[in-house]
Design a protein around this nucleic acid. Sequence first.
DNA 1: TATCTAATTAGATGATTATCAAATTAGGTG
DNA 2: CACCTAATTTGATAATCATCTAATTAGATA
Lengths: 193, 193
Amino acid sequence: MQLDKLVHFHKALGDPTRIRIVTLLKQGPLHGQAIANKLGLKPPTITHHVAKLRDIGLVYQRRDRNTIYFYLDHKKLEFNANAILKIGEETKVTQEMKVEEKDKLSIIKNFFDADGTLKQIPSQQKKKLVALAYMIRQLEPGKTYNEKEINEYIKQYHGDFATIRREWVMHHFMYRENGQYELNPKEMWPVIF
Amino acid sequence: MQLDKLVHFHKALGDPTRIRIVTLLKQGPLHGQAIANKLGLKPPTITHHVAKLRDIGLVYQRRDRNTIYFYLDHKKLEFNANAILKIGEETKVTQEMKVEEKDKLSIIKNFFDADGTLKQIPSQQKKKLVALAYMIRQLEPGKTYNEKEINEYIKQYHGDFATIRREWVMHHFMYRENGQYELNPKEMWPVIF
DNA sequence: TATCTAATTAGATGATTATCAAATTAGGTG
DNA sequence: CACCTAATTTGATAATCATCTAATTAGATA
């Protein structure tokens, strides 16, 4: 159930230290000791809190030499903050676009060649979304790609990478931020493969 | 500042029972025992949880004969859910107001007497913020002060402690929480001295 | 290799909290 | 008034959790 995710998200923000960490990271990445100093706490305490924020996907990290920088995932924050407003209604939305598993498979079979390439982009909305979800499945959540990488990836399926890339963004499979592309959480997808 | 309010809001939603109550009330008002039945809990437990939701203003109630109906305040839910996205926003704006060190010194020289008292509160925004940052520098981070202590402290600089105290809070140098004052982390300050 | 730095883990402590049974209260209605 | 119903308070219990110190790990550097 998605209830649990909502609970964990709000529980994570239900603590003054973690709210302050989020506030700090909003302005840019920081490493652990910097956070500890700014908040007047010890490093183990920061590890403890950052772990909780990472568990719910709100924070990710990148290493630079000995130092680990923590980043805030703004999109995820926004998405989760709004989730409580949509609870109970999202059932309707996803229900309308629910596609049976066997239908998904037959769509794939019809529109993809034996070698895995896309014969043509389906014009019917539902089928198009299934094809888009299928093709995006090998991109990694949390990883950022530049436009060239995305194009190369798409080419294994179809030559018109511009259209497919645009459709992915348009239907919230991914988002673009100053030239970088990244997967959205699957809950935002109109269809999951 | 609204940190505490934010924390209480998210803490209130950081519990599966309360999320379920909110979900139920989204569809319309209910009385206590109805909620208890739907959730398989005892009435005292519902009282306990509804009290927390009422404390943060998310739920209000109306009596009809012997029965008390609980209502969800949709507006407040939406406002509070979005608050986390807006926290620190003003800081970002004022962050652009970078002041050179030498300018800071000349501002201090111009507005403070030889004995250290503030001649007058600068009306120009930038200069005012520098003066405010200068005067607050001896307060201890993490320590809480009551209003009287703050007033006494300000008096060493200027007689109009009410204005200066209000400006400090307004510009996020410090925040007030039930009569107690405390420094904000310097990252929230529009100017650091 | 030894050494340095930043982060994490382990374990302890004190505080908070979700839940319930029992008793009590607040407001009706006969 | 006596009685009824729904909600609340009280007090107890078990679980969760924020924070710290001390010890350990992961990776980089010399």
